[in-house]
Computed example of a mutant assay.
Amino acid sequence: MAPDIVNVCVIGAGRAGMIHAANFRKSVPYARLAAFADPNREAAEQAARSLEVDKVYTDYRDALADESIHAVVVVTPTVYHREIVVAAAAAGKHVLCEKPMAMNEAECKEMIEACERGGVKLQLAFMRRFDESFRDAKRQIEAGAIGDVVMVKSLTRGPSTPMPWMYDIRKSNGPLAEVNSHDIDTLRWFAGSEIAEVHAAGGNFRCPDIREEFPDFYDTVAMTARFADGKLGSIDGAMGVQYGYDSRVEILGTEGVIYLGQTHERTIVTARRDKTLQRPFMNSWRSLFKEAYLAEDSDFIACIREDRTPAVTGYDGMMAVRIVEAGNASLARGELVRLAD
Rank of each mutant, 00 (worst) to 15 (best):
M1P: 09
P3W: 05
D4Q: 13
N7K: 14
N7D: 15
C9G: 06
V10A: 02
A13F: 01
G14C: 06
A21C: 07
A22W: 04
A22T: 12
R25K: 15
R25I: 03
A31N: 00
A31K: 02
R32L: 04
A37V: 05
P39E: 15
A44M: 08
A48V: 06
R49S: 13
E52G: 09
V56L: 13
V56M: 09
Y60K: 06
Y60W: 07
L64N: 05
S68K: 08
H70E: 14
H70C: 08
V73P: 00
T76S: 11
E83W: 01
V85G: 11
V85R: 07
V95C: 06
V95A: 07
L96I: 09
C97P: 03
E98T: 10
A106Y: 04
K109N: 13
K109C: 08
C115Y: 04
G119P: 03
K121I: 15
L124Q: 13
F126L: 14
R135M: 15
A137Q: 04
R139Q: 14
A145H: 04
V149I: 11
K153Y: 09
S154D: 15
P162H: 12
W165H: 11
Y167T: 05
S172Y: 00
G174V: 00
L176C: 12
S181T: 14
H182E: 15
D183R: 01
I184Y: 13
R188A: 09
S193N: 09
E197Y: 05
V198N: 03
H199L: 14
A201G: 08
G203F: 04
P208Q: 02
I210F: 05
I210Y: 10
R211S: 14
P215M: 00
P215Y: 02
Y218T: 13
M223K: 00
A225H: 02
R226C: 11
A228Q: 13
K231I: 03
L232H: 07
L232W: 06
M239F: 11
G240H: 02
Y245H: 07
D246M: 01
D246S: 08
R248L: 13
R248C: 10
I251Y: 04
I251H: 02
I258R: 05
T263V: 12
R272K: 11
Q278A: 13
R279N: 08
R279D: 06
F281N: 14
M282C: 12
S287W: 09
L288V: 12
A292C: 08
A295M: 08
D297H: 02
S298H: 02
S298Y: 03
S298P: 03
R305G: 03
G314H: 03
G314V: 03
G314W: 05
M319F: 06
R322N: 04
I323Q: 07
I323F: 07
A326Q: 07
N328T: 01
S330L: 00
L331N: 00
L336G: 04
A340V: 08
